[in-house]
Design a protein around this nucleic acid. Structure first.
Lengths: 343, 343
DNA sequence: ACATAAAATGTAAACGTTTACATTTCTTGT
DNA sequence: ACAAGAAATGTAAACGTTTACATTTTATGT
């Protein structure tokens, strides 16, 4: 027997066009037939075949999301925000996390040219140049997370890393520390670079000298935080405070401090960036910059929907900065009055 | 001008059938034309339209994944495993996390009848009965995570909660503790029930009495762990050891212990379940049961692909148990020799 | 050179919708 | 009762593939 819309049409003794009109609320249909069709559809448990539908309408109601990896609390937050807005607008999300850059490119190509999605949210703190050329062709709406490629017609969303880092650093300065070091993030990472710039800027404006040795490179993971801390503390002239480019590295630093029997913040103060869940459990609680990750996911989805639904495209490069905020714990030297430290 | 496969056909001066054959490696094609077609396709940056393709082949190479919420490290792990296998098999994953049960049902219906996916992985520790009726119609391959609905033809994958809980409890018993309490999980949660059963079983086999007051209900979150611990410690007869149904609750318990100035494990020993990242950072490090979450994701994807590709369906109810393992920290009373406690 | 089979290619009908356009059926005012 | 316009419905052509079947071309053995 016939299927889908045709079946309904046969049962109701109308044409498929009428059925389609009812199902999509397009064009006028007599109330009685509308009701009848709706009822039969209900009874048959009918759901329109989305492939046929997408083929015809040339849109899928699906947004592709490409993330670098799926390991972090960080990505979880972004997905959560994306999903939230997607749900609200009845969109589906196609998720892909690519381990290799090869995968990333392949997926992007598929998304851009394969008709699988209406638009793409790409999170890529570091952009392969082949990817850049792909992005320039710019076939479908695209929102970039955590990077600014300088390509017209593309929206990118970033934390205000510069400002956040600056504020955190200023806070350390206000405590009276003069010897402040930083454990940076990977050179290629856009966030990392901006955070470093913010740090520098704060020092400069306060006329605080920054010796080369006070800049140690990290990799955004626990281990590099550990070794970064160790390295700083083995300097002849030790820093009094450390700003770490992300919280993960702070975890390593705490561990290192413990094994060196250094107290935080009495011997060395610390501030981080991201405001991961764990930071709130540290003892002393971590002073850090809150990165609004869920908000980033939401904003990304909202932007992409705007582009898809309203065919809106930015004229030039268009960057949204999500403002960050300082979360004060005890690690910077502030009196830490919260009782959330389990450990 | 014409598009897609037609365009290629025109340029190469062949029929679309030939192009299709080349692109899909179906049927024989002369080597020279094959090469030619492939080259043109390459030049045009051609990707087959997946909607047309799916419509025709009646498969989408996409697997739907429905999760209850997207907040936890737990879900992240599952997705990671799913994604890993999906990548390897060139499949796409459509992710949906539903906050309301209404959403969950709606999404399931769409996935099952809308032709958007080839199969569904559903994680639902508690199953709405409407969902059960939907599942019985059983239109597409389905893998259930963390629940066993007792419906034939459906695969479900679970941690070996019973065994894990039993082993953990036995470990506490081996330390010589006789007064052992448990903070349980939500009644409706399948994992929670099984873990409780394992706990009971261990006590019973060792002839240890379990007073009613030693069973306090929790909600799998930090707060309930906190209050559960408080409640147990305000009993006239306090437990010497506590088994918590998951690690999140342990976090609350640690906090409570701290505020009561009770030492772990000297005053009260603790064991948890899940082996979350955080547990390794606690001081003392948490003794817990490792739940192989990434493995669960992988297994789920593998099963669903088996069902999709080989049209395999289990005759009856079919449950896979992923074995758990005890991770020994210091919270149970063991000498904790690892140096990973940052805090 | 010819019959026969194998290899290569082409034709056309699906797949299940949407939608522009055409046609029929109602209203409504006269 | 009729014309004119509005409302309701129908027809058929897309959308871009895959694939069964038919046809043409090429290779092989005699």
């Amino acid at each position: 027997m016939s299927k889908g819309i045709v079946k309904i049409a046969e049962i109701c003794g109308v044409s498929i066009a009428t059925v389609s009109r009812v199902l999509n609320n397009s064009g006028p249909v007599k109330e009685s037939t509308r009701a009848r069709i709706l009822q039969i559809a209900q009874e048959l448990n009918y759901k329109p075949n989305s492939n046929a539908r997408s083929l015809s309408r040339r849109r899928t109601d699906t947004i592709g999301v490409i993330l670098p990896e799926l390991v972090d609390e960080f990505f979880m937050g972004v997905i959560q925000g994306i999903n939230e807005v997607a749900n609200r607008h009845q969109r589906y999300i196609m998720l892909s996390s690519s381990h290799s850059q090869r995968d990333e490119l392949e997926t992007m190509l598929e998304f851009m040219n394969g008709g699988r999605v209406d638009g793409v949210i790409l999170m890529a703190p570091a952009l392969h140049h082949t990817m850049k050329t792909i992005l320039k062709s710019n076939t479908r709406p695209l929102v970039l997370l955590n990077c600014r490629p300088g390509i017209p017609g593309i929206v990118s969303i970033n934390f205000d890393n510069f400002q956040g880092a600056k504020v955190a650093t200023e806070h350390l300065i206000q405590h009276g520390y003069q010897k402040i070091a930083m454990i940076t993030g990977p050179e290629i990472n856009n966030d990392a670079r901006e955070r470093f710039r913010g740090f520098q800027s704060a020092l400069k404006e306060n006329n605080i000298n920054l010796p080369e040795s006070f800049i140690v490179p990290g990799e955004f993971n626990i281990e590099s935080g550990y070794y970064g801390f160790m390295r700083l503390m083995s300097l002849p002239e030790k820093p009094r405070a450390i700003f770490a480019a992300n919280d993960m590295m702070v975890l390593g630093a705490y561990e290192a401090a413990k094994s060196l029997k250094l107290r935080i913040p009495e011997d060395v103060a610390i501030a981080g960036f991201d405001d991961i869940f764990l930071g709130r459990l540290l003892n002393p609680r971590l002073t850090t910059v809150h990165a609004p990750i869920v908000e980033m996911g939401r904003a990304a989805m909202q932007q992409i929907l705007k582009m898809v639904d309203e065919k809106w495209r930015p004229e030039e490069e268009y960057t949204i900065h999500l403002s960050t905020g300082l979360v004060i714990g005890g690690s910077c030297g502030c009196k830490n009055n919260n009782g959330n430290n389990f450990v």
